[in-house]
Design a protein around this nucleic acid. Sequence first.
DNA 1: ACCTCCTGTAATAAATATATTACACGTGTA
DNA 2: TACACGTGTAATATATTTATTACAGGAGGT
Lengths: 107, 107
Amino acid sequence: MDNNLSGDELLKLLEALSNPYRLKIIAVLYEERQYVSQLARELGISRPLLYLHLQKLEDVNLVKGQLEVSENGKAMKYFELNPFVLNLNQQLIFDLSKTLTLKRNSN
Amino acid sequence: MDNNLSGDELLKLLEALSNPYRLKIIAVLYEERQYVSQLARELGISRPLLYLHLQKLEDVNLVKGQLEVSENGKAMKYFELNPFVLNLNQQLIFDLSKTLTLKRNSN
DNA sequence: ACCTCCTGTAATAAATATATTACACGTGTA
DNA sequence: TACACGTGTAATATATTTATTACAGGAGGT
């Protein structure tokens, strides 16, 4: 087992990553941190939608946001990437499946 | 870039993996190949639903199914795991984001 | 003939995820 | 004051995914 997360956490992480905008957000933030409005423009989506995506990324700790006040006095919420790496393979899934919750049990 | 897949393929793979039953299916098949009805019983879900999940896994080549005829003459559809490994990290996502399709473009 | 156990799928319902619209509010500047 | 640009969220609509129900059909065994 190469990671210290649970099956449920793995699942949440995979869910967070399984959306094109969220992947794109990661790609953009990989180059440099950015504030919400600007990020929305770059991605071509509305701020409310972006918030939703950022939320999901933040929930699994892929991303971190902080509100700052710029020189000109404006409140800016900057987001940046948290480092992460996951070696995904069958063995890992097998191991973590033991701590994975299914709605209806059995297993 | 440690893999030869496109951004869209990566996304499909992540989507295929972001469901508890599908992870569980992988975990079960990691131990041994299994036929559909038995697999459905082990997971505690209906066959139609299992078919749906197997379909998604097969679509991204995580799994492979073949229809066989057992000794007692019954048709059995066995599924087994295809080997796979994916080193998931920010760099990879950044690289593959270039071949990732967003509904509305920009960027 | 009837029961059991298997494959396969169509039609539909229910649950979630994604996306839009419309707000409210703050600060700096013309 | 009005405008531009930022944050934040509630309410709602739309789309997609997940789940169920109800079939049809084949082969072996009693």
